[in-house]
């Protein structure tokens, strides 16, 4: 039998000390890693339980919010300040998983969940460069309806599965981490990475680094924001595509806008090209479509997922139309 230990971290310093071991993994709510261990996709020999670390949601001096990484998804979605000032974040969380899972899953764990690519999970029958580097990718020429259209590589076409992260990307959240080399912050868009030739690495975290908190900067117009998700059934399914957006009007023109897409890439996809097209321009359906088309110009659809750019374009256009009229969706 493989030797195995479970250790509970008393504080951040303790967690970092216990987590430096090569075979160690941090444990939040367990909703992903317990499953991955059962399927032998993940094989840590030491779990460091970090659910006892900060789970508070507090106001910051700059008018934003600081969310402890051990906060449960439900606690964030139901928090009064998140609901009123960052509704896209509440909406994104509520669109994900089931109530039971949201009650268990932590914010830190949500950021670090692995892809739901079926070939990644199929340890017995499939090649997967993310699970077993260098073996190949059976998704690229396989059943790839749920896979990436932006930023993929020959080695990997997996998507990041989180809904919450799409909202955090749109909000320019800041990730607080602590590790063997001390504490640092990472801009949200720089946390997750594109697969390149190292799809086994999902993030830019160094070995042993622990996410301790997420900071939401103040964003006045985030109150006028939404999250929409298209999936194969009405509830309790991962996204085919999703959109997080916040919009500020300036008269009848677009003052400022934030957009991120989910279900289209190896990371939550901040749509800076689309934002640049829209900022200062007219609030028209044609402009919304042109913005999305600019973002998906570099899309490289696979056999089964060519519908994604057009679907994401239509959802974005409909959302921005609603947000321009102040109709929260």
């Amino acid at each position: 039998m493989t030797p195995f230990r479970y250790l509970r971290a008393a504080d951040v310093a303790d967690a970092v000390k216990l987590g430096t071991d090569d075979g160690a993994a941090f444990l939040g709510g367990g909703t992903n890693i317990v499953d991955l261990m059962r399927e032998t996709v993940a094989r840590p020999d030491r779990l460091v339980d970090v659910t006892g670390l900060s789970d508070t949601i507090t106001e910051t001096a700059d008018g934003g919010l600081l969310i402890g990484a051990a906060a449960r998804n439900t606690a964030v979605a139901e928090h009064r300040a998140v609901r009123t000032r960052y509704p896209l974040l509440s909406r994104a969380i509520l669109a994900g998983a089931s109530a039971q899972i949201r009650n268990m899953a932590t914010v830190g764990g949500n950021l670090l969940q692995r892809t739901r690519c079926t070939y990644f999970y199929d340890t017995d029958g499939s090649r997967c460069n993310k699970r077993a580097p260098g073996t190949g990718c059976d998704a690229r020429d396989g059943f790839n309806r749920i896979h990436a259209v932006l930023g993929a590589s020959d080695a990997c076409v997996a998507t990041h599965p989180s809904d919450m992260c799409v909202a955090l990307a749109a909000l320019d959240a800041v990730v607080h981490v602590n590790g063997p080399d001390g504490a640092r912050t990472i801009a949200f868009d720089a946390l997750h990475r594109l697969p390149g030739d190292r799809p086994d690495r999902d993030t830019m975290l160094a070995p042993g680094e622990l996410i301790t908190a997420i900071a939401l900067p103040p964003l006045r117009f985030a109150a006028n924001s939404a999250y929409r998700k298209v999936r194969d059934r009405a509830s309790y399914a991962f996204a085919l595509i999703s959109v997080a957006a916040a919009l500020e009007m300036d008269g009848d023109r677009i003052g400022d806008v934030r957009i991120a897409f989910g279900g289209v890439a190896h990371k939550p996809w901040r749509a800076t090209r689309a934002e640049a097209v829209l900022r200062g321009g007219p609030a028209t359906h044609a402009a919304y479509r042109a913005a999305a088309e600019a973002e998906f110009e570099t899309a490289r659809p696979l056999r089964d997922n060519a519908f994604k750019p057009e679907l994401a374009t239509r959802v974005l256009a409909a959302m921005l139309g609603d947000l321009a009229m102040g109709k929260l969706a």
Partner: peptide
């Protein structure tokens, strides 16, 4: 594997999936 809800139990009154929960936690 957390996809069906048949294992739902209440922990301090909150519903969770016992299949994805390590008892030791």
């Amino acid at each position: 594997q957390g996809a069906c809800g048949a294992c739902t139990v209440l922990v301090d009154g909150e519903r969770i999936l016992s299949c994805l929960a390590l008892a030791v936690q």
